[in-house]
Amino acid sequence: MFDETPQNTLPGAIKLPGAVYTISVEVNGKACTEEAPAQMTLLQFLRERLFLTGAKEGCGVGECGACTVLLNGRAVDACLVLAVEADQASVRTVEGEARDGELTLLQRAFIEHGAVQCGFCTSGMLLSAQSLLESNPHPNREEIVEAISGNLCRCTGYVQILEAIEAVGEGMEEGG
């Protein structure tokens, strides 16, 4: 299913056992074909191969949500997905949310409601929230709390984040 090369070449030309695969992923609406060693996580792929550094590594083990991206529309921890697993999939990262410099409603609401402090959790938080709003345009407080419960934030105490998401939900037109 994959083109497999016998040597696993890392940046800096260190030869390690293993294999490199060529994968095709749609990232933020754009098709891209890149090489990735088997052990490379989707998070490393996005950050180190595509230089999309919005998704952060906060723990590397799926506990903090700072690396949240949308994989085929669903929020996942990019640190717990191998890049090769994303072959033929679509991925959305925070960099693809604003279109032509125009912030999304949610991004604007995060700014206006003081939902951002240090900003390190923000990318992941936004995508968890965005995925909720796309499947459930008018979520109640409990649903919002649940949707971002896998995204740790140490700065805000969450309240202003919940308020920002709630405001977007309340402001959304049916089907919008």
């Binding site: 799926g62 949240t68 921890d77 968890s128 949707a147 419960s149």
Partner: peptide
């Protein structure tokens, strides 16, 4: 776990 983990 978390919503993200449950998606996988």
């Amino acid at each position: 776990a978390t919503p993200q983990v449950r998606n996988r």
